[in-house]
Design a protein around this nucleic acid. Structure first.
Lengths: 248, 248
DNA sequence: CGCCTTCTTGAGGGGCGTCAAGCCCAGTGG
DNA sequence: CCACTGGGCTTGACGCCCCTCAAGAAGGCG
């Protein structure tokens, strides 16, 4: 099962660093041919970013864009008095960074330890002009993020605390998906963030998150292996906990 | 001040219907040259859609895309038991419709009376391939919608009822903006939707919306002219009501 | 005028926030 | 090896904000 070389007709043209890249075909790089990849890779850097570090500091702010190779990145907004709301989570192989300027007041942080492959803004924008499919891929990712944001607006505005927590667990379960999970209905979830982050994601407090994890456990929807790992015996059961019919 | 003809060097090439179009330069059409506009306009239709009608019915679902010429369009999500959340509002000259497939479970309705200029899906997608700037414009609008959705997530998750209502009024004030409002700090807002819609937008109930409009009136932040019109004497005052510092 | 829809206002209750105490566990140093 | 410490998490007690239920006011329209 030599996954690393599938589909590369002219492997000689593909940069060595890219040949070994886990997300090479799925990320935005999938839109580029060997020659373009070669040019891009001349300017790329791999970074390991440890948990809780901001991605926007250290000169890498709007200067560099990046692909997530592993880990989870969180986007959040902060109010003057300290209230905080997480407005997006990104997983490999998502693209991080904002084409065409400003990301008004959004903080980008590593939720877990993260590995990224970054490159200068100008390099990507140069490639965008010559390769329309690149812009199309970015456009599609933006549309996907918009869908997720809207799904989350429904959760924030109209679900109660228990449904919110179940929704979060379901989201993580379906995203961190380590290639397996096909056909299986049970899954062990490694929570990528601590209770405080989950609270900021759900528009709740730490205590309410904790109480409702306990509630789901007592109802038998989940098993709490340890504070960072949850076992779900039946994903459908979890899914139905994300929106109980309250009208009866 | 002949606004209608500004900037058209070769007006002869521009379709007559487009020459009179109020949003011709600002919408996605701004990316097209005369010849392309001519081709597009062969397939466009103007529609007047009256208040509360769905835009996705009558064969105009994924078949046709549209530009909003006037009025307000609302996007909403509905849960099985009737709970509803409005996840987006669109104003002229926004583009309505989803490039590349499915708009998973989103209902598109006219919030007010609306006029649109619509065209078949294939026509637009054909033009997108030959004119990259068209895709770029759509991409930029998607990014703007994403920003707005995230701003709204902060409102839904972390603001109290009074701040939510103030945020809604401020949003409308800064969007419906009838060309004027430059330099002035007061504005009369014509609310584009009824209390129930506002509640669905804010994740509140009708009663709470009503109570907090009253509250803002009694605090002198707004004047309620009639149930559909609000006068704001000082926009800055309204803005500061959108996020009072609760930490002291 | 009567009817219907929309909006406002009040009274009461519940869900989630606030405050506080205690548990679990990893890290540190004696 | 164990006491100490500190961060993260859980659990309880209590209170407030917003929802629920209900009645009435204000328009709009035949």
């Amino acid at each position: 099962m030599n996954n690393s070389q599938r589909k590369d007709i002219h492997n000689s043209e593909v940069p060595v660093v890219c040949q070994a890249c886990e997300v090479r075909h799925r990320g935005v790089c999938g839109a580029l041919n060997g020659e373009q990849l070669m040019r891009l890779s001349k300017h790329t850097k791999r970074h390991a970013i440890s948990h809780a570090a901001e991605l926007t500091t250290g000169g890498r702010s709007a200067e560099r864009y990046a692909n997530i190779m592993s880990g989870v990145v969180k986007l959040s907004k902060l109010m003057a008095d300290g209230r905080q709301q997480i407005v997006g989570l990104q997983f490999a192989p998502d693209f991080v960074g904002r084409p065409f300027a400003n990301a008004d007041g959004i903080t980008v942080e590593a939720a877990t330890d993260v590995r990224v492959c970054s490159f200068p803004r100008e390099t990507l924008e140069g490639l965008m002009e010559e390769e329309p499919e690149l812009e199309q891929r970015l456009h599609r990712q933006t549309l996907r993020e918009l869908d997720e944001a809207r799904e989350w607006m429904l959760t924030l505005g109209r679900k109660n605390a228990e449904e919110k927590v179940a929704s979060f667990l379901y989201l993580i379960a379906t995203h961190v998906d380590p290639e397996g999970q096909n056909g299986t209905t049970d899954i062990t979830i490694d929570l990528p963030m601590k209770r405080g982050d989950i609270a900021d994601f759900l528009g709740l407090t730490i205590e309410t998150v904790s109480r409702n994890i306990t509630k789901l456990r007592k109802r038998g929807v989940i098993d709490v292996v340890d504070r960072r790992t949850v076992f779900v015996a039946d994903l459908h059961r979890l899914h139905s906990a994300t929106s109980q019919d309250l009208s009866r």
